[in-house]
Design a protein around this nucleic acid. Structure first.
Length: 422
RNA sequence: GGAGACGUCGCAUAGUCCGGUCGAGUGCGCCUCACUGCUAAUGAGGUAAGGGGUCAAACCCUUCGGAGGUUCAAAUCCUCUCGUCUCCGCCA
């Protein structure tokens, strides 16, 4: 939810942001109108109610005829108060639904445009020249089969398309990646967390996933619970309705399964485990003072880069354009790993600065020097397991189909230097 | 799944039976001041959030887990709901 007071002050800034996202500009005007109406209705209700309470206090003291007279007076007042209250409630609900429909105000530094208008910030690492090395690139599906690490066929048999089993070395690799990620995060000041993957509507709503992203969320109707698409949801909602005390930023890193319906991506990335309905992920999350959020965003990006560098995977960083931001994000950086079989960079991690958008919805604030203050939330992927496996297998493959294990990961895999073909 | 108890201002509690003087007392914690060689102790005062209003105040409204209802009036009565705890059953 955006800051209504700020919108009141400068509606044009919000309009500009909506335009940059390619979303409704006139929604801003509707909010302004609804806001004026609300304040009028609020004043009406409040003065009637104040009157009612004042007379009520007299009723309590009065006796006999005097009391009867007051009762008669306040009886009609009571009806007026009720009418004013219900009018206020309707206007309030209307305003709320309009404000909730507004996406976060984009960071002016974010490149304006659609999906393809991102800006490449940097490229890191060296892509291998497989032709020069003298062998044809295998994709992660082939490698996964050779190693006995990924079983897609049986994933489909048991659960349908976009499901998989990690088997043998694949299963151990996931655990190794997760441990490396969690250990790294803890060293960097994150509190390790294992959060619930099923959440109530309030948590989903509060993090902004029931808006335009709703069609990609699994919903368990009989229990009215949602399967989270990212640990961002239970981590953000962890402090829902709280005023944070003490030192900020407060950083958490969670290991959790992620479930995504992938509606609207039919036919996209159908091969392998690049785009699946379920995967596991280590996610970073930060509750941060508003004026430190931009620096914190850079920090999260830095942690993501360090992880990719530890895995020796070539990647680039892009500054995602306004039209491609999630509704909660003011700015987003993606790390895209080089995928040799596709001869292009593909997203493996993503970090967003949600400024105060989520914390307003979730009613999270912090006690600062000047009292209770709003707070910024930021999230970033440390390791999305399946996509990391794709990048790892493909970039570190050897001529015979075996895969070199990067040094940083070896301690978590019994010191082995390679995944060998079975 | 069955039976019961309970959700109050950071924490712990009072208030609920018998509706108004309760937006709410007390203790602890925290903040300010005084006293003290320092700390501690003691004394005085302050200490929920959100909204409206104001140059700033004053002031007003809302919130006693949540949602409804009864009433002139609800922390207090009624209904539903969520959560916590205890016992039983079941289970990893």
């Amino acid at each position: 939810m955006i800051d209504l007071a700020a919108l009141r002050q400068d509606p044009d800034a919000v309009k500009k942001s909506q335009a940059a996202r390619g979303e409704s500009v006139e929604l801003v005007d509707q909010v302004v109108v609804a806001d004026v109406a609300r304040r009028a209705a609020l004043g009406e209700f409040e003065s009637l109610r104040a009157n009612q309470k004042a007379i009520g206090a007299q009723v309590a003291k009065a006796q006999g005829d005097e009391k009867q007279a007051l009762l008669a007076e306040t009886k009609t007042l009571s009806d007026q108060v009720k009418a004013a209250e219900s009018a206020l409630r309707d206007i309030d609900a209307n305003l709320d639904s309009l404000v909730l429909a507004l996406s976060n105000v984009v960071d002016p530094a974010a490149p304006v445009g659609g999906e393809d208008d991102f800006v490449v910030i940097k490229e890191v690492g060296t892509k291998r020249d497989f032709a020069a090395e003298g062998f044809a690139v295998r994709d992660h599906v082939e490698i996964g089969e050779l190693l006995g690490a990924i079983d897609i066929e049986r994933g489909a048999k048991v659960s349908g398309s976009r499901f998989y089993y990690l088997t043998g070395p694949g299963a151990m690799l996931e655990l190794a990646l997760v441990q490396l990620a969690m250990n790294t995060a803890q060293k960097n000041g994150f509190i390790p967390m294992i959060p619930p993957a099923l959440v109530k509507p309030a948590a989903m709503e509060g993090t902004g996933f029931l808006g335009q992203a709703a069609e990609n969320v699994y919903h368990l109707e009989s229990d009215d619970l949602y399967l989270v698409g990212t640990a961002e949801v239970p981590l953000a909602a962890y402090h829902m309705d709280e005023i944070l005390e003490g030192v900020l930023p407060r950083r958490y890193a969670a290991f959790s399964p992620c479930f995504r319906r992938e509606a609207g991506s039919h036919g996209k990335d159908t091969r392998g485990i690049f785009r699946v309905h379920w995967f596991d992920k280590v996610e970073m999350f930060s509750f941060c003072p508003v004026d430190e959020a931009v620096a914190e965003h850079e920090r999260l990006l830095g942690f993501e880069e360090e992880f990719l560098q530890a895995l020796e995977i070539p990647y680039r960083v892009i500054d995602v354009a306004t039209g491609d931001l999630g509704s909660s994000a003011a700015r987003k950086f993606d790390c895209e790993a080089w995928v040799p079989s596709q001869d292009r960079y593909r997203e493996v991690t993503s970090t967003s600065n949600c400024t105060t958008f989520q914390s307003r919805r979730l009613k999270i604030r912090a006690r600062g020097a000047e009292g209770v203050e709003p707070i910024a939330t930021l999230n970033g992927t440390l390791c999305a397991v399946t996509r990391t496996i794709v990048a790892l297998f493909e970039n570190h493959q050897e001529a015979d189909g075996s895969v070199r294990i990067p040094k940083a990961l070896q301690p978590y895999l019994g010191g082995a230097s390679h995944f060998k073909i079975k």
